[in-house]
Simulated scan of single mutants.
Amino acid sequence: MKLKLQLPLSILIYHRVLAGPDRLFPEQVDARRVEQHMQLVHRWFRVMPLTEAVRRLAERSLPPRAACITFVDGYADSAEVALPILRRHGVNATFFVASGFLDGGCMWNDAVIEAVRNAPGDRIDLGRAGFGILDIGCPVRRRAVIDMLIAALKYLPPEERIERVKRMAQRFTPTMLSSDQLIALHRAGMEIGAHTISHPILASISNAAARAEIAGGRARLQDIIQAEVKMFAYPNGRPGHDFEERHAAMLRSQGFAGAVTTAWGAARAGSDPFYLPRFTPWDRGAGRFLLRMARNLLLPPA
Rank of each mutant, 00 (worst) to 15 (best):
P49G: 04
W44E: 11
R87L: 14
Y155L: 13
H186N: 12
N92A: 09
A111I: 04
G240Y: 09
V34W: 00
G270K: 08
G132Y: 06
A194Q: 01
F279S: 07
R246I: 07
G127S: 15
R33E: 10
A31H: 10
C138A: 14
F256L: 05
A93C: 10
A227F: 13
P21S: 11
R238I: 14
H241Q: 13
Q222W: 09
V112M: 02
Q6L: 08
A119H: 06
F71N: 01
S198T: 14
V140W: 09
V229I: 13
A219D: 13
L149W: 09
L276P: 00
A209D: 11
I197C: 08
R141Y: 12
A219Y: 01
G287E: 14
E213L: 10
V91R: 02
M38A: 11
E213Q: 15
R55C: 10
M48K: 02
I192D: 01
E191I: 01
G258C: 06
R43N: 05
R56E: 10
V116F: 00
E191W: 01
E160Q: 15
G90T: 14
G127H: 09
T70W: 02
I197Q: 05
S271D: 12
V17P: 00
L276Q: 06
V145F: 05
A210Q: 03
T70V: 13
H199W: 12
I85M: 07
P300H: 13
D30W: 10
V17W: 00
A267I: 06
P239E: 07
A233R: 03
P281K: 03
S78E: 11
F25N: 11
V229K: 02
I136H: 00
N92R: 08
A184M: 11
L298G: 07
Q28V: 10
L291G: 06
L40N: 13
